[in-house]
Design a protein around this nucleic acid. Structure first.
Lengths: 192, 192
DNA sequence: TTATATACGGGGGCTATCTCCGTTTAACAA
DNA sequence: TTGTTAAACGGAGATAGCCCCCGTATATAA
């Protein structure tokens, strides 16, 4: 009943836990990059030198881990967007950021897979870490619409979904030029 | 050495085998539609009233089964393309077929999943059953290019990949209008 | 220093994929 | 028809991955 209950029950996270969480995130990122998005949970735990129980305490299931790694990466893209909007005219900023997104998919193929791959789970993955990326692309798109240069008749997030599909490793050897070209096709197709 | 060797060694497929193959394909299609693309192999075998060994003899692994179901479905789309090309002007035919593709993804959400979902396996899935669908979209695209109305700076198959991503169930409640609109954006973006 | 909430580890349950092999059956020849 | 044989069948079980459980260890706060 009293406020002191919170005091009593709240206890800051133990240092080892925080350390291990970070370690697991880093390890997962590199293991995913090396072995692909299908790397087993046990393997990741082993690579981090921790028990699988520890891995599962921090990330209750496979998707939660992928999502966490993914969210981490996306943060950087969100920051880049701010910069581009400040420095470039609206449509150019949108285009530049989409190209950055393509480039990003390149370095982190696994993330492209995560975007499109989770069977039935993609939605939830998006719902969580997608919130940020969605806010970002929507900001860029709205900005361009206000400039009067493009019309927006599709949910902006879908633009990314389309790009991610083409920019996934599965899209063959020419995925990069294809994806870059797709960005321009989309922009051209949206011009008023 | 002699031609009669073939006679001797070749023996036409047994009737029960052919029957069961068909039965398994049909069953798989409906089970996938009902329970989603994650339905277990054992469940499909059981639903068909056959042993799992039989299922695996016909389709050596899960992906082979999905691929076979998928290829089956795509056949119909290929036929529709012929008709559209004969009846409509080039770009209209391309657009109409892409919209048909969207509609198709709607009825067979599982196929959209198959298009984008197989972890690391998408490429192979495409390589096999994609041959036909690729030939189809390329025919439509080349036809439109010859008409001089559009430029083709992206591999046509990638257009489908983009559409499939947006038209997948994972793309949220508005996937259909979004996907349809994407078709028009793509067409507009490709106009010369 | 002691008490306690919190974290750790890894064995094990469960489920799904795929293999193996003894049994059954359809196809062909005589 | 009937016998022979290659082909197909079925389903138990080997393997592997996800995740839970819980006894042990330890960081934190008093």
């Amino acid at each position: 009943m009293s406020g002191s209950d919170d005091r009593k029950t709240l206890r800051r996270q133990r240092a080892d836990a925080a350390r291990n969480r970070l370690l697991l995130l880093e390890t997962a990122k590199s293991v995913f990059a090396e072995k692909g998005i299908d790397a087993s949970m046990d393997e990741i735990a082993r690579a981090a030198g921790l028990g699988s129980g520890t891995l599962y305490r921090h990330f209750p299931h496979r998707d939660a881990l992928i999502e966490a790694v993914y969210r981490n990466e996306m943060e950087q893209l969100a920051q880049a967007a701010e910069r581009l909007v400040a420095e470039l005219p609206p449509v150019a900023a949108l285009r530049a950021w989409m190209l950055l997104f393509v480039e990003y998919m390149g370095t982190k193929q696994l993330m492209a897979a995560a975007l499109t791959a989770l069977p039935g789970g993609t939605t939830e993955l998006y719902a969580a870490s997608g919130a940020q990326i969605q806010a970002t692309i929507e900001m860029l798109a709205q900005n361009a619409v206000r400039g009067g240069e493009i019309r927006l008749e599709i949910e902006p997030l879908e633009l990314l979904r389309a790009i991610a599909a083409v920019a996934s490793a599965a899209a063959g050897p020419n995925w990069e030029p294809n994806a870059r070209r797709l960005v321009d096709i989309l922009i051209a197709g949206m011009r008023a």
